[in-house]
Each structure stands twice: as structure tokens, then as C-alpha cells.
Simulated assay, not measured.
Amino acid sequence: MTTIDDLPARRGALVEAAIRLLSENGPTAIKARTVTSEADLTTMALYSAFGGLPGLMTAVVEEGFARLDTRMRTIEPSGDPIADLFSMAIECRRFAIDNPYLYDLIFGIESRDAARGKLLAGAASTEGTSYQQSFATVANACDRAINAGRVRSPSGRHLAAQLWSLVHGYISLELGGHFAGFGDPVDEVLIPLAVSFMTGQGDDRDKSLSSTTKTKV
């Protein structure tokens, strides 16, 4: 077993190990012994670093939202804030497809494996710093759309909450296999849904449709 005296390094090693196991084997693989073995640490290291498995999973959720936020921030502000929002939605989808179990965990979804559902879903939280930052990234982008006069909303946070619900609802359904009958669910479901949403928020439909052509699919 490896000895890591530095607490932040030990915590980081355990979080990375848990994410690898989650990605490769799903939530049934997340147990104290399997995570510590993957990290080449003792079981005691887990308890000294996080107080137990629930504490570790809360840290994994925090890291998951940080990674999602990093992906969304790859969309740099352009002259078309609606296109930017569409591109961020597509990037969220890519993140979910690349990390389905981690996505389920951070949003408290149990769709792919209920065996460990209660433990893992209980780790999801809207109180973590990374969640707040990822939501702020969306809200700031929404503020730009409002300030540009494209849409109407009391605030970027209000618009972001609605858009967040739309995008993650779509992603959950797609990951659950509910759009298997569509040749291209992004073009046939997500983008038309997003255009209808933006039109409902006051955007001109032709402008929204034009913005989709600038989306980084």
C-alpha cells in the first residue's frame, strides 16, 4: 500500500479512484475496499480523509460538477448569446454521454443501477461550491442573452433554472434510451425543443433557428 502523508493528495487520490471505478464498472463497484484498493491506500485512509464512504461520494459529486463546469466554460462568449447557450447545452450532453454514471451521481439519478442508489444518490447536493459555480456559468450566459435583448426574464438565474431543467431532462431521457427511435435526437428533439423554449422567452424564432447553425455540435 502507498503512504500519502499529505491529506489533500490522499483525498484527491481517493476521489480519482472512485471516479475511475464508477466510470468502468458503475455504482456497484463503489465500496470502501474497492476504492481504497484502486487508490493503493488502506481502508483507514478513506475514513481519515472523508469520515467514510458518504463523505467520499460527496467529494466525488463536487469534482463531477467542477468537471462539468470546465466543459461548459470551453464555450467562449460570442456575438450570439443564444448560440452560446445552445452550445453549452450540447457540451452538457457530451459530458453526460462521456460520463453517464458520474452524471447520474451528481444529479441524483438512479436510472442505470439501483443497487447502490440510496448511498450514491444521497451524495448529490446543490450546496457544493462546484454546483453553485456550474449553475453560475449558465446564469451568466443567460444574463448576456437578456442584456442583448434576445429574451425576457426576471434574471439570468430564473432563465438558467428553466434552461437547466430542459437540458438535463432531455439528457436523462436520452441516456435512458427513450430516444432510440430517432436517427439524430439532437437535431430532431433537443434543438427544436430549445428553439421553442427560447421563442417562448421572447426570442424571434428565425433568430433562434439561425443561432442553432452556429452551435458547436
Rank of each mutant, 00 (worst) to 15 (best):
Met1Thr: 08
Thr2Val: 12
Gly12Pro: 10
Ala13Thr: 06
Leu14Ser: 14
Val15Gly: 01
Ala17Thr: 02
Ile19Ser: 14
Ile19Met: 12
Leu21Trp: 15
Leu22Ala: 11
Ser23Cys: 13
Ser23His: 14
Gly26Asp: 14
Ala29Gly: 10
Ile30Pro: 13
Lys31Gln: 09
Ala32Asn: 13
Thr34Asn: 03
Val35Met: 02
Glu38Pro: 05
Ala39Ile: 03
Thr42Phe: 06
Thr42His: 10
Met44Ala: 13
Leu46Cys: 05
Ala49Tyr: 13
Phe50Thr: 07
Phe50Asn: 08
Gly52Glu: 14
Met57Asp: 02
Thr58His: 06
Ala59Ile: 04
Val60Ala: 01
Glu63His: 11
Ala66Arg: 12
Arg67Met: 12
Leu68Asn: 05
Asp69Gln: 15
Thr70Gly: 03
Ile75Ala: 10
Ile75Thr: 12
Ile75Cys: 13
Glu76Leu: 06
Glu76Ala: 14
Glu76Tyr: 08
Ser78Asn: 15
Gly79Gln: 12
Asp84Tyr: 14
Asp84Gln: 15
Leu85Ile: 07
Phe86Gln: 05
Met88Phe: 15
Ala89Tyr: 01
Ile90Phe: 09
Ile90Cys: 09
Ile90Asn: 04
Cys92Asp: 01
Phe95Arg: 05
Phe95Leu: 11
Phe95Glu: 06
Ala96Arg: 02
Asp104Glu: 10
Asp104Val: 06
Ile106Gln: 04
Phe107Val: 02
Gly108Ile: 02
Gly108Asn: 02
Gly108Lys: 03
Gly108Tyr: 00
Ile109Trp: 07
Ile109Ala: 07
Glu110His: 04
Glu110Gln: 06
Ser111Met: 10
Asp113Thr: 03
Gly117Ala: 02
Gly117Lys: 00
Lys118Ile: 08
Ala121Lys: 13
Gly122Val: 00
Gly122Ile: 00
Ser130Gly: 05
Ser130Asn: 10
Tyr131Gln: 08
Tyr131Cys: 14
Gln132Glu: 10
Ser134Pro: 14
Ala139Phe: 08
Ala139Met: 13
Asp143Lys: 04
Ala148Trp: 11
Arg150Asn: 03
Val151Ile: 07
Val151Arg: 00
Ser153Asn: 10
Arg157Ala: 13
His158Leu: 12
Leu159Ile: 00
Leu163Tyr: 14
Trp164Phe: 05
Gly169Ile: 07
Tyr170Glu: 02
Tyr170Cys: 02
Leu173Trp: 05
Glu174Thr: 04
Gly176Gln: 00
Gly176Ala: 00
Gly181Ile: 09
Gly183Asn: 07
Pro185Asp: 09
Pro185His: 09
Val186Thr: 03
Val186Cys: 04
Glu188Gln: 06
Glu188Cys: 01
Ile191Phe: 04
Pro192Phe: 11
Leu193Cys: 06
Leu193Gly: 05
Ala194Thr: 10
Val195Glu: 08
Phe197Glu: 06
Thr199Asn: 10
Gly200Phe: 03
Gly202Asn: 01
Lys207Tyr: 15
Ser211Thr: 12
Thr212Tyr: 01
Thr213Gly: 09
Lys214Glu: 01
Val217Phe: 02
